[in-house]
Each structure stands twice: as structure tokens, then as C-alpha cells.
């Protein structure tokens, strides 16, 4: 346990040691203190952890953010004083910036567990996976699909005069007459090519001075994340487009990965403790258009229990199953 006295001593040592004015004698005294008791070591470790937690912050920005930080008390008072005004502003923010807002402002969208097929004016086809939202902007010079969130497979009709481009906040994927898949979830965009050739480029925006980087992808290759320094890797086209047939296929995937994938197909959240189910693997095919069946399968295959509430699914390891191999 933390002993307040040891922490105080450790804090005093840390202050001295980081002052840049330590004498040899003081350094020796510190070593002696540190080694004379295991509790001293523990206390010093806690102090160092705190000290080092500043390490990966940009100093000037972090200082501004922390000094500018209203205390919890102030926020509470603020909430009580002007709850509706302040929170209305937050929800506006959410509507403009979040994926939820994107969803409602988009031309076409799918909800959790829903899939949708679109045929566009030029004969191109788009298959939208669960929780996806797109805008369609066809003009005389280009065919632009803005993927706000989610995953789509596009089958592009040939039109040499108008390039077909899928754009996300991370970059673009331009078809040169072809079938390909673009997926943007959890803050990144991946692209996989099924037929022909696709040109993938990073976005210029956000940090406007970023240089745009492009890459040509051939069939059965893809990039896992559109970002500077990205590289083409082979992809298993059947596996990644399995959802278009209504199922997901896994090959010794950790259960937590499977649940994260499934979460996209379920309204609300799936809650689980990764530590307790860490050793469980899933191999096989899981239906996603019938999510009840998917959960029934998983709870039959693995020592887990699954409770479903409105907007919340709780996955827990069955008691006493930890010992089993």
C-alpha cells in the first residue's frame, strides 16, 4: 500500500534530483535511501510514474490546457447555472463534428445492423455496410462519393471523362474503372481493391502543410490506413467482403476483436472486460444480418454469457471457467 511518509520522502528526492544541482553526496544518500527498503522503491516508482506521465505531451500546449482547465467544482456550478444553454451548445457541436451528426446530414445512411444497396445514375453500384453514411456529388467533371463514416463496396461503371472518387477525412481513393472497398471506422480509413487499379491519396487538410502522398493499388491489395508512409499489402478479398453476403469470417481472432467488429452491427454498445476474456479465440463464420443468432452461436461455442438490454449488450465470462484450457 501507499505509505504517505514514503511518498513524501520520494517526492522530496525527486524534487532534488530534478533540480540540476545534486551533489555527489546527495546522490549517494538517495541511493542509500532507495535501497534500504522495498517500500522506498515502490514509493519512488509511483512518483516517477507521475513525473513521466508528462513525457509525451507537448509542453507549451499541455501547460496552456492545464492552466486553463476549469475545476470540477466550476463545471458543476456552470451546469447548474446554465445547463440548457451550455449543453445545447455541446449538442450543436456534436451535430457538426461527430459521426452521429454526420449520419443525419448525409444523403444516404444505414443504421446499426442495416445494409443497403444503391444504384447510381451512371449504373455504378454501392453496397453500404452497417452504420455508414455517404454523400453523393456527381458533376460534369467528376463523380465524388463522400464517405462520412462506415464501410462501402463500390462497383464503378466506366466513364472515361469523369473520374470516380471516394473521399474520407483521411484521403481519397480514385477508381480507374473497378470494384473496391473503402472503410472508415475508429478514426482511420482503409481501402482494398477487388478489381482493376485504384489510386489512393492522403488528405491535405487538418494540418494544411501536410504533403499529399499517393499510391496505386492492384487487385487483392490494400492499405490498412490512409496516412503518410502508407504501404500496399496483400488482402484476402473474400474475407474482407464477407459482410456483403451477410456474415463475417474470423480465423483464430481474439474474442475482443470479434466483439468490436460486431459492435458495429448492434444498436448501442457491447460491454466486456477484455482482461477476463483475453484468452478466448473465435474461428469461423458469424452472421451479422441476424445478430441474435450470432450471439447465440458465440455463447454456445465459448464459456461466456451474453445479456442483452436495450442499447447495451453485456458479455461476461462464465464463473469458474477460467481454469479450463
Amino acid at each position: 500500500m501507499k505509505d504517505p511518509n514514503h511518498i513524501e520522502q520520494a517526492a522530496a528526492w525527486k524534487t532534488l534530483l530534478t533540480s540540476g544541482e545534486v551533489t555527489v553526496a546527495e546522490q549517494q544518500a538517495f541511493e542509500t535511501w532507495l535501497n534500504e527498503d522495498l517500500e522506498h522503491k515502490k514509493a519512488y516508482k509511483i512518483v516517477e510514474k507521475f513525473w513521466d506521465s508528462f513525457e509525451h505531451l507537448d509542453p507549451a500546449s499541455a501547460k496552456s490546457a492545464l492552466l486553463d482547465m476549469p475545476s470540477k467544482k466550476k463545471i458543476t456550478m456552470g451546469i447548474k447555472a446554465s445547463l440548457s444553454v451550455f449543453l445545447a451548445a455541446v449538442s450543436m457541436w456534436a451535430l457538426v463534428n461527430s459521426s452521429i451528426g454526420d449520419h443525419y446530414l448525409a444523403d444516404y445512411s444505414t443504421t446499426a445492423g442495416e445494409m443497403r444497396d444503391l444504384v447510381l445514375d451512371d449504373g455504378s453500384r454501392i453496397k453500404m455496410n452497417t452504420g455508414s453514411a455517404i454523400d453523393i456529388a456527381y458533376s460534369g467533371t467528376s463523380r465524388l462519393i463522400k464517405l462520412r463514416q462506415g464501410e462501402i463496396v463500390v462497383q464503378v461503371a466506366k466513364d472515361l471523362t469523369r473520374p470516380f472518387i471516394v473521399e474520407t477525412e483521411h484521403g481519397t481513393a480514385q477508381a480507374l474503372g473497378t470494384q473496391y472497398l473503402v472503410k472508415t471506422v475508429a478514426g482511420s480509413t482503409s481501402v482494398a481493391v477487388i478489381e482493376s487499379i485504384v489510386k489512393v491519396c492522403t488528405a491535405g487538410g487538418y494540418f494544411a502543410h501536410k504533403r499529399i502522398e499517393c499510391l496505386n493499388l492492384t487487385p487483392a491489395t490494400g492499405v490498412a490506413e490512409i496516412k503518410p508512409g502508407m504501404q500496399a499489402n496483400p488482402v484476402d478479398v473474400d474475407e474482407i467482403t464477407a459482410w456483403t453476403g451477410g456474415y463475417l469470417s474470423f480465423e483464430s481472432a481474439p474474442l475482443s476483436t470479434v466483439l468490436h467488429e460486431l459492435e458495429r452491427y448492434v444498436p448501442g454498445k457491447i460491454y466486456f472486460d477484455s482482461a477476463s476474456i483475453g484468452d478466448l479465440d473465435v474461428s469461423g463464420v458469424v452472421p451479422v444480418t441476424d445478430i441474435d443468432r450470432a450471439f447465440a452461436m458465440l455463447s454456445k461455442l465459448l464459456p461466456i454469457s451474453i445479456q442483452r438490454y436495450p442499447y447495451l449488450t453485456v458479455v461476461e465470462r462464465k464463473a469458474g471457467s477460467e481454469e479450463r484450457k
Binding site: 496552456s64 490546457a65 482547465m69 494540418f207 502543410h209
Partner: peptide, 30 residues
Amino acid sequence: MIDMIRRRHLETTYLQFLQLSKSEQFVDSP
């Protein structure tokens, strides 16, 4: 809710200052 507001506040302030202060060679990944 308070934690959420705080988090958002910290995130926004940090990002704003980061963008203001950083030169080209430094671009943080998400």
C-alpha cells in the same frame, strides 16, 4: 457529464495550441 466536458475542454485547448505552436516538422499522429 463533468468528466466529458473536461475531457473535451482539454482536448480542444491542447489541439488548438498544438496547431498554433507547431512548425512543419512536427505532426502528431491521431
